[in-house]
Design a protein around this nucleic acid. Structure first.
Lengths: 118, 118
DNA sequence: CCGCGATATTACGTCAACCGTAACGTAGGA
DNA sequence: TCCTACGTTACGGTTGACGTAATATCGCGG
């Protein structure tokens, strides 16, 4: 109940986008597109849903609100807890990637036996 | 419509478990538990749901069926397409992990500026 | 001898997250 | 004028994961 590891790509990238300076929703949208090399383009529903959820979980927080030309800009920043959570996720991704890569390599070299584990 | 990248952890681990020899459902359950270091324990619903889905997508295939003590064992193997798909996922995970790690490092060192991207 | 855990799969119902799109409003360029 | 960029809100829909129970055989401990 105190754990809740698995995080999907959009959520992960939102946190990643906020490791830099605080950004508002639209800025996050662009940042995510940029750091995914254009392969991930979040829809509005996904983005703002994630922001509400992450705020509620304390992984991000509202930094400030600005009004530009009557358009609202709500800036979010990554909390320390969010940064901690993100680094846990990074380890999980690396671990999974390595396990799969090892399996694929074994397969490619014809070695079929599976070792127990690390 | 020809693309369908994002894959969640359970699905990813099922494919990873099958990079070795063909396994039946219950064997996959154990293998996933093992290679995740015990942190991921799939429920029956998740596992068999994933197997049906992946079979339908052609990423895995039924190798053979066996009956042991009246208990059915359906063995699955990873298809070439599944292996290809898995390696694509590996790259995606690594890319995301690296992007997040870079951001966290910058944050830790006080450097706040975000570079464009790789 | 009875219950429990391991072995294996099927079959639910539920929920969280993602997806897509429309709506609302300003502003600037083709 | 229409379309795009900006920026957020508000839906409805789909999917994958989750949890648990049903079914059935077997072996072990009490």
């Amino acid at each position: 109940m105190l754990v809740m590891p698995p995080m999907q790509e959009p959520t992960f990238l939102v946190l990643t986008a906020l490791t830099g300076e605080p950004l508002h929703g639209y800025g996050i949208l662009q940042q995510v597109t940029a750091l995914s090399g254009g392969t991930v383009v979040l829809g509005a529903g996904t983005l703002y849903g994630a922001l509400d959820r992450l705020t509620e979980q304390g992984l991000i927080a509202v930094e400030r609100e600005e009004a530009v030309d009557g358009r609202l800009r709500r800036y979010y920043r990554l909390t320390d807890e969010g940064a901690g959570r993100l680094s846990v996720e990074v380890e999980r991704l690396r671990r999974n990637a390595n396990a799969a890569a090892a399996g694929l390599r074994r397969r490619a070299t014809g070695n079929v036996t599976l070792p127990g584990l690390a």
